[in-house]
Amino acid sequence: MTAVAGLYEARAKEQYVVFTLRSTRFAVPILQVLRIIRQLPMTQVPRAPDFLEGVINDQGQVVPVVDLRKRLGLHEPGPPAAPSTSEDGGRILILELPPTSAAGEQRVGLLVDAVIGIVRIADSDIQPPPPMVAQVNGVYLTGVAQQDEALVMVLNPERVLTVDEVAQVSRWYGRGDV
């Protein structure tokens, strides 16, 4: 019984949610994604850290949203912003970050262009990020995988925000400004 459960867990671990930013494909581990929602109008918050796009109300919980394009530096040197393919705007991935020493368990929203689907990527198919990654700082990446003849950047969501930033977010919305 435990062996079967372990197998399921291992298979769940190898599942990733794939989404696009500009024309680049990214993947995050499915177990860290809580749900996917449509882009909502965001509440701008005074004195919030500049990487925060704003906050949204997700099922009664206030969740800070990070614009991954800004975070990954994809907005400045890239091609002029392609109009969003979906008429109702982008998607927000609600992630659940594991607790760290600086802050407890934390939910963060990632603003992305579109969600492509869920794929299975074996750990052995993930190669370490090339030393010269043009657009994305290697710190955020677990590696690069080949998926249907397209390259997928496998993101490490725990690294998308540094420990300090998580703590900053935690402090900021623990203060009750919202």
């Binding site: 867990e9 769940a12 599942q15 499915i30 177990l31 994604v33 996917i36 929602i37 689907g117 869920i118």
Partner: peptide, 15 residues
């Protein structure tokens, strides 16, 4: 979108 979320929920539910 619903199916994606269902997949995520199923993966989190494990076995």
């Amino acid at each position: 979108l619903l199916a994606l979320n269902a997949s995520i929920e199923a993966a989190r539910a494990g076995e």
